[in-house]
Amino acid sequence: MQVESKSRSDLAGTVTAVVFILMACLALWDTTSMTDSDSYVFPRAIAAAMIVFCILLIAYNFIKRPADEAAGGTGSASTPRRVGLVAAMLGASLVMPWVGFLLSGFCAFGAIMLFAMYDPWTGRRRIVFPVAGLAIVLGFYTLFSKVLLVPLPVGVWFR
């Protein structure tokens, strides 16, 4: 994404439109398995409209040289940290059924803390931050599971 910064020729928009067309076709194909007209009329109409809009967008992008569209300024933004955040969250939710909510929550919290850390790890922070993390996770865990009675996953490994 770093490539298109300024005066991009909305290539990304065109590619996205193509992806959306493919998605709409997939949706149209899926509607053939529906028997009730109540079920397929609406999604078919929407998928068709989507294809039309996408084709229009692609055509528009070809015909008109797009004006400068300022994307969110990337600057010195760190992609590894972004990927790390998403990976930590996704990873934690995927292993949750096995290791349980609390443990995966601690791990995700710790990992994301590392990705979000820009200040130097001074001696004080080394202690305060993890302790704060522990307290927050435990606090929310207690609020949800004990007060609000949400059945949070226990984890198959710890039954």
């Binding site: 307290a135 927050i136 606090g139």
Partner: peptide, 15 residues
């Protein structure tokens, strides 16, 4: 410690 207290207090108040 200020931060800690604040966050702790938030959850405590909620709970």
């Amino acid at each position: 410690m200020d931060i800690l207290r604040k966050i702790g207090a938030t959850t405590v108040v909620a709970a």
